[in-house]
Structures are given as C-alpha cells and as structure tokens.
C-alpha cells in the first residue's frame, strides 16, 4: 500500500470511524473514568498502548490462529498486554492505577479494541495494522479526553486541574457521577451525528462486524442491535 492510503487508514480511525463517537463502541470506560480530563487522557493512552501492541501481535499471528478459536486466542493476547500495562502503571504512577481501578483490566473485553482485531488486524499486514491501531487509539484518546474535559468543567469548574470561570454558575457535582457521564456522552454523540450529517448513526447500524460477539449474536443479520 502507498503512503496515501496509510494516511487514510489513520484518519479513518481518528475521525471518520472514531470508535467512541461514531461507532459507539467501548462505551463503559468512557462513562466511568472520565471524571477529569487527565484521567480520560490516561485511560486513552493505556488503551492506545494495548491496542497497538495487541493489533501488531494479532496481525503477525493471523496465519497461525485458527478461525474457530480466534476469540479465546485474542483474549489471551490482549489480556497479556493489559497486564503489562497495569504493572507498568502500578510501578511508575501508583495513584493512577488506583484511580482507573477495575476499569484497567476491563480493557480485555473492550469492544472498541476487539473491533479492530475482527475487522482489521486479522486480515491486514503488520504495518497497516499498527497504523490502524494508532489511529483508532488516538481517536479513542481524544474522545475520552474531551468527555473528561466536559465533565470536569461542569462538575468541578476546572479543566486539566486549572480553574475555569463558569460565568458565575456553581459546578454541578452530578456531572462527576454515572448519570453525568451518560448525559455527556449522549450529547457528544448527538453532536458527532449532527457534524457528520447522520453518517455516524448509519455506521452504528452496521457495526455487527466490529462487535466481539458479532459472529454469535442472535441479532446479527436481523439489522443488528439497533433495530
């Protein structure tokens, strides 16, 4: 593949098929850890690391892993890199490890990462898979940081720890809890929908192929989950 199409793969992951805002995959970490912009950024960067390493590994092993047992094999590979990431974070930034808590190991079953295995890494070359993983990871990081910034701004009146004036309004603590996360993400997805002139909603309809359960899901072939 030439340079142009690698750029396309990268931009596809960051913008046109942003895993969170366009494909609506990997919603759970976006609701829980994004209480501050820096927590969202940290979670996004850990996801970027895990996605990159496991996509390269899976692309390298695509001829070795039999199609029938691919999902358990992928889970072991991604589980290994998640453990690596967690041990590194626990060693160097222990405060972050306790902050991300149980959501760090939950990356193993994150459908935003699994989607890349199923739809890209298992059928493309190593370099292209790495580019795709970088793009997707960066897109996810940007979306998580944005969600974190919005919640931090309205919830505690700061962004990245710096105080921001809310024009006299008091911060709404609700934004720091789960309902605030659901509300923020809903608003962000509506904005993505508006900006892409409805293309995001269309992409969500045929996302079965990027869902880890897509091949066994009873909703597959019936118009997907979003009927």
């Amino acid at each position: 593949m030439n340079r142009k199409s690698r750029k396309d793969i990268f931009l596809n992951g960051v913008i046109f098929e942003n895993p969170l805002l366009v494909l609506a995959l990997g919603v759970c970490p976006a609701l829980s850890v994004t209480v501050t912009a820096s927590a969202g950024l940290a979670m996004g960067l850990s996801m970027l690391f895990v996605t990159l390493c496991s996509c390269v590994m899976i692309s390298a092993l695509k001829k070795v892993i039999p199609a029938k047992v691919r999902i358990p094999c992928w889970m072991v590979i991604i589980g290994t890199f998640v453990t690596v990431a967690r041990l590194i974070i626990a060693a160097y930034i222990p405060a972050l490890e306790s902050r991300l808590g149980v959501y760090l190991p939950l990356m193993v079953v994150n459908c935003a990462i699994f989607g890349r295995f199923e739809s890209f890494a298992s059928r493309n070359s190593i370099v292209n898979s790495a580019v795709d993983a970088l793009g997707t990871g960066l897109g996810y990081t940007l979306a998580l940081t944005l969600a974190g910034a919005v919640r931090e701004l309205f919830g505690s009146g700061t962004v990245f720890g710096l105080p921001v004036s809310l024009a006299g309004a008091r911060p709404a603590v609700l934004f720091l809890f789960a309902p605030g996360g659901l509300f923020t993400l809903g608003m962000m997805m509506a904005a993505a929908n508006k900006l892409s002139r409805g293309r995001a909603a269309q992409k969500q309809k045929d996302r079965c192929m990027s869902c880890p359960a897509g091949t066994v899901c009873p909703m597959n072939g019936k118009g997907g989950c979003e009927r």
Binding site: G180, L182, G186, A190, A191, N193, A201
Partner: peptide, 22 residues
C-alpha cells in the same frame, strides 16, 4: 430531533434512569 435518534437518546434516557437510582 434527527441527530438524537438512536444511541444519543438512549444514553440520555439511561442518564435519567441513573438519576433515579442515585
């Protein structure tokens, strides 16, 4: 509104349900 159809509306509905659980 068209932009809110599907996922965005579900997320906001879940937020309101979450409020009642809080």
């Amino acid at each position: 509104p068209e932009s809110f159809k599907g996922m965005p509306s579900y997320l906001i509905a879940a937020a309101i349900l979450g409020l009642s659980f809080m």
